[in-house]
Design a protein around this nucleic acid. Sequence first.
DNA 1: AGTGAAATTGGTCGCCA
DNA 2: TGGCGACCAATTTCACT
Lengths: 161, 161
Amino acid sequence: MQRVKLDKIDRRILRDLQEDGRMTNVELARRAGISAPPCLRRVRALEETGFIQGYHADVDAQALGYNVTVFAMVGLASQAEHDLRAFEARAANWPEVRECHMVAGEMDFLLKIVSHSWDEYQKFLTTQLTVAENVNHVKSALSIRTAKNMPGVPIDIDAED
Amino acid sequence: MQRVKLDKIDRRILRDLQEDGRMTNVELARRAGISAPPCLRRVRALEETGFIQGYHADVDAQALGYNVTVFAMVGLASQAEHDLRAFEARAANWPEVRECHMVAGEMDFLLKIVSHSWDEYQKFLTTQLTVAENVNHVKSALSIRTAKNMPGVPIDIDAED
DNA sequence: AGTGAAATTGGTCGCCA
DNA sequence: TGGCGACCAATTTCACT
């Protein structure tokens, strides 16, 4: 990743685009206090240096029938690097697994999984996850309701970094 | 939420916009196999009915100095609805808490928290989270590395629903 | 609800300060 | 770097089907 420092204008652009990814460049420029062309150049630079990794529509999961979100805490039998990578590769290929984090502590991986129903999740659990190679134990935490779900990170315009 | 059924074109639009939120309407229309105006009408309808809840730039957290992601599993002393809501309201006001899920099982809430460093997280933990009213115990799971992080849900173009 | 053309707006480039 | 003007592409509205 680039070690280039961002100025206040860059941070403002990042913050605004994180909040509204479809904001027009002219509006973005207006808020940043500069004109459109340099603003667009900054956005392109932020994209090319990887500060902005992409843009995504935030789709309502429930409206699409994904009523169930489960956090699965997975323990593996072997924590050798090769085996960890193998599990990560498997997780990457399961479409219902949206996030896969390797964590420190009692478990090895924390997965965020979406499903249409508890039954469908159980089926995934029993036919895919628990029977996968090297998987030792799985503890499922069903999300009853999501009180907060903010994408991205807090961006402070006035920062030293 | 609207109980309106989506056709294949709508699902295709949702899928494409979830993958690339800045795709132009003409490109979107081209992929969906219709012309631009009706495509735009569909997008607006999807936005107004809440299927699309917004658009966000995917900002690289590490590049912005957020090197630490922690999942905090929180147990409360009282699970009365009023007390649950009070905790959710508190979580909503902590900017470093990006997600707050009420879960079934041994713990009550699962929080996804971003921080610049482990020290900063510890400070948040000891001065904000553990001392908050009704909080009984907190177990922190530090994310060592993120193997997968896909926003949204899998969208199958050919579905009955 | 989709099409095609028209008008308005925004994105993008070259050049200059 | 940022700003200005020009051109091109995209968005958006309208009349028609």
